[in-house]
Design a protein around this nucleic acid. Structure first.
Length: 833
RNA sequence: GCGAAAGUGGCGGAAUUGGCAGACGCACCAGACUUAGGAUCUGGCGGGGAAACCCAUGAGGGUUCGAGUCCCUCCUUUCGCACCA
């Protein structure tokens, strides 16, 4: 009975034991200083929001990162594998409202709970570098950066229309509005409000952020494309049309100035200041304009701005084309956006689909000004939007190609001062003010005498008041705390008001990975020398949902820090990997769908190793993963087979430690061959392909082979040193995926030290090589049979073997073999007529 | 509408360069051991057929000795963008 009990794999017995040992030995997962002499490797997973519960998406993300980190440790690298908490944000305030718990307490309790979950999963983090963004020793540096950026003109304050989420009761950045809805509440429509707000001048880096994407070849093309779209660079021309009578200028932006002789109207956005002025003098127009504004707003809220029907109204005013002097009507239209370009366009219905649609509807003249470049061909139908053509009906510019005309027209405009070549970006400055309590206080003071006064560095950090009543009413909660608000002006010493907005939490996550390199530094955000050693990040791993948000802010912040001479790298991460979602029953796991699987349940039932290994086994890491609990049970059974096998033959393996090399029999050769093939396969995958699902499958195959050889093993037919190599290497291969079981078996095999410090096995190609091959033989491309030949058999020998085969002879009898194709090592194909 | 990725057994998935389709696992079936089994072990498991064989990777065409893989047309799903002038 005793032996039987010993042969049961029980993760509940193994895992807590090692968890305790690892907790007592923080050096195991600790990064070493640069002086260690090893090559460095920085592997980073996106830090979680401390909701209090890890979800399966985290488990998957962290299992991938941990496997990589463990592999790199075994490869002899100095690995930095840190973890932290994106700890500011609204849920803490909501929880405070609901449970009357202070946000700080709630957050810190959640962090403790999630840290326990991570430790239970056996994730190998360097907790000495832990970063918690809601603590003053971290957000101090948010404030410090804010002031440095203010000094460089990268922070400014302006009154503008901003996105307001009624649910969050705060302002959102453009990036945080998805289809007119809040990124955190996809059923909450974002409103537009006019407010005075703080902005980061991310547009100053628009061109560099765009250019840098070309060099980020370790990032998924998908993410790069999304960022390119978001930045939205567009080259064109600005041209002034003059309002007839008043002489006011309407500046339009166009990418097709070559078509300007075809402009038969000028179209303005309903919110264009000139329209506001026109409407003020024309009550009937005002009614129409207000309707258009309302319509645009509704479309924006519905998220289908592109789908609304185009319409507009003539203002009764006219404007003059600066090139031709032609008089064209000024319209206001619902398809013109105030926040792109200049909020005004020249409408060229002959050469633009949208203008064509509009002009057709309202009977505005449609004129051809671009003809086919090939004079012999028929004129293409309008609207003709190609830039491959020549100008017609364009006065002195007739006959020029589109490209040549654009250049010439731009020169003329610049020369005469009514326009210029220009570049427009869709990217807008990053609005960072939030009217919330649980965030980094913005370190500015409003003084009636001195205006905006930065908080002096020596007064940082501006600490959040700990006790504050959280309510749902609008406005910054900090504004209701007199001891926070009332300060003396650093300049004049008079009474002043402290800024009460806090920073967007994306500020926190824009640079946290730099802080990891020097997390305890009290005098600066980090030591540039230490960050210089670790950066750039070698591998960043996270969800694709941050392709625009976090990942563009982080790139911006890196460039700012570089320009502050804190770092020398231009980009934060050399390689980025975006893992797929975890879904269940065809839908993303979510509370509302009731299909959430708790990591704690999985760990309690099957152990951390099985849970993690299933997360890697069930699908390739970049694809969505369908969570099936039976699959976890399957992995758990597999780990049980490994355990029993290793325990059964551990004594033989130990005896093999002293064993001398000896003559190998066929069984041993076959097992060693499989072992070395498996080693090669897994090593290769870690080097780039990352199909960890097939790595786990390969280990399963190896174990199946070992199990099939059980009789030989039991009879002692496999020499002890071979048994030792087999089991030892099996445990090493398993170590990145199942850390607990590997640690346990490593000790059971009598190996000294931690398996994490053992060198990664090296595959010997000579041992991995097959000596005999099964070569499929086809007739006319269809498989007929398989012949066994030596691995190094010549094409001639394979051909001979194929022709000698009974089945082949039967099938070719009486027919002509026209041709024989032999691919050495692969197959033979007979073309038979 | 534009762009990208994907579509393979009952299910998750494999097939890295055009070369034995279905590795590995789940589920299921049969058997062994057992007082018992959510344990373990052995075998089976795409479809048709008694078999020889035939058919099969979303659909249809093509290139090739040979196509899941390359090309063309179409369908479906997911994701991103969407009056950006």
């Amino acid at each position: 009975m005793a032996e039987e009990k010993e042969l049961r794999y029980d993760p509940a017995l193994i895992e807590p034991k090692w968890q305790e040992r690892w907790a007592a030995d923080p050096a195991l997962y600790a990064a070493e200083p640069a002086s260690c002499g090893k090559p460095k490797y920085y592997v980073l997973e996106m830090l979680p929001y401390p909701s209090g519960q890890l979800h399966m998406g985290h488990v998957r993300n962290y299992s991938i990162g941990d496997a990589l980190a463990r592999h790199m440790w075994m490869r002899g690298y100095n690995v930095l594998h840190p973890m932290g908490w994106d700890a500011f944000g609204l849920p803490a305030e909501n929880a405070a409202l609901k449970n009357n718990t202070p946000p700080r307490e709630w957050t810190l309790a959640n962090i403790a709970a999630m840290k326990r979950q991570m430790q239970r999963l056996g994730l190998g983090y360097d907790w000495a570098t832990e970063v918690t963004t809601c603590l003053p020793d971290y957000y101090h540096w948010n404030q410090w950066f804010f002031l440095r950026m203010y000094e460089k003109g990268l922070v400014y304050r302006k009154q503008s229309k901003v996105n307001w989420c009624p649910e969050c009761a705060t302002v959102l950045a453009n990036e945080q509005v998805v289809d007119g809805r809040c990124w955190r509440h996809d059923d909450t429509i974002v409103e537009q409000r006019n407010l005075e707000q703080w902005f980061f001048r991310i547009t100053a880096y628009a061109q560099e952020l765009l250019d840098g994407l070309d060099k980020l070849d370790g990032w998924p093309e998908k993410v790069r494309t999304m960022q390119r779209n978001w930045i939205g660079r567009s080259e064109g021309t600005e041209v002034d049309f003059t309002v007839e009578g008043s002489g006011e200028k309407i500046r339009v932006f166009t990418t097709r100035v070559d078509t300007i002789f075809g402009a038969t109207s000028v179209q303005l956005a309903p919110e264009h200041p000139l329209i506001t002025a026109f409407a003020a003098a024309d009550a009937a127009l005002k009614v129409k304009v207000d309707e258009l504004i309302e319509e645009q707003k509704k479309a924006k809220e519905a998220g289908d701005v592109g789908a609304i029907e185009k319409h507009g109204v003539a203002t009764g005013r006219f404007a003059l084309n600066p090139y031709s002097g032609e008089r064209v009507p000024v319209w206001v239209a619902n398809y013109i956006l105030m926040d792109y370009g200049t909020g005004a366009i020249m409408s060229v219905p002959g050469h633009d689909e949208r203008d064509f649609e509009f002009a057709t509807k309202y009977g505005i003249e449609i004129r051809r000004v671009i003809a086919s470049a090939d004079a012999a061909s028929e004129e293409p139908a309008l609207p003709f939007t190609s830039e491959d053509g020549v100008l017609v009906n364009s006065g002195e510019y007739n006959g020029l190609s589109c490209a040549a005309a654009e250049k010439k027209l731009q020169d003329v405009a610049a020369g005469k001062g009514f326009g210029k070549a220009t570049v427009t970006f869709r990217l807008k400055d990053w609005g960072v003010s939030r009217q919330r309590y649980w965030g980094t206080p913005i370190p500015m003071i409003h003084c009636e005498r001195d205006g905006l006064v930065p908080v002096p560095d020596e007064q940082l950090p501006v600490v959040l008041p700990p006790q504050i009543e959280i309510t749902q009413q609008g406005g910054s909660p900090l504004g209701r705390v007199p001891e926070f608000v009332n300060v003396t002006c650093p300049k004049c010493g008079g009474a002043a008001r402290r800024e009460t907005d806090t920073m967007d939490t994306f500020v926190d996550s824009s640079w946290y990975f730099y802080r990891y390199t020097d997390a305890k530094n009290a005098g600066q955000p980090f030591d540039p020398a230490i960050a210089g050693y670790w950066f750039p990040i070698d591998q960043y791993i996270g969800g694709v949902e941050h392709a625009i948000l976090h990942l563009i802010y982080s790139r911006f912040w890196t460039k700012v820090m570089r320009d502050l001479d804190l770092i020398t790298n231009d980009e934060p991460a050399r390689r980025l990997f975006t893992q797929g979602m975890v879904i269940k029953d065809g839908a993303k796991m979510s509370k509302s769908k009731g299909n959430v699987v708790s990591p704690d349940d999985m760990v309690a039932r099957y152990g951390a190793d099985a849970t993690r290994m299933y997360a890697l086994f069930a699908a390739p890491p970049d694809r969505d993963l369908d969570w099936q609990e039976d699959g976890v049970a399957g992995v758990s059974r597999f780990l049980g087979r490994v355990w029993r096998l290793a325990m059964k033959y551990a004594p033989v393996a130990k005896a093999g430690q002293a064993g001398a090399p000896q003559e190998l029999n066929g069984g041993a050769v076959k097992l060693l061959r499989k072992l070395h093939q498996t080693t090669a396969k897994i090593t290769q995958d870690f080097e780039g392909r990352w199909h960890f699902n097939t790595c786990v499958a390969a280990i399963m195959e190896l174990v199946n082979d070992l199990q099939a050889a059980d009789a030989q093993l039991a009879a002692g037919e496999i020499p002890a040193p071979v048994v030792r190599e087999l089991l030892r290497t099996l445990v090493l291969l398993l170590a990145p995926f199942a850390p607990y079981l590997s640690a346990e078996l490593w000790a059971e095999l009598g190996e000294a030290g931690d398996v994490l410090r053992a060198p990664w096995p090296v595959s010997d190609p000579a041992l991995a090589k097959e000596d005999e091959l099964e070569v499929p033989v086809q007739i006319n491309g269809k498989l007929v049979t398989v012949v066994r030949v030596a691995a190094d058999a010549s094409p001639k020998a394979i051909e001979a073997a194929a022709l000698a085969d009974e089945k082949i002879q039967a099938r070719t009898a009486g027919k002509t073999v026209a041709k024989i194709i032999v691919v050495p090592g692969k197959l033979a194909n007979l073309v038979v007529k």
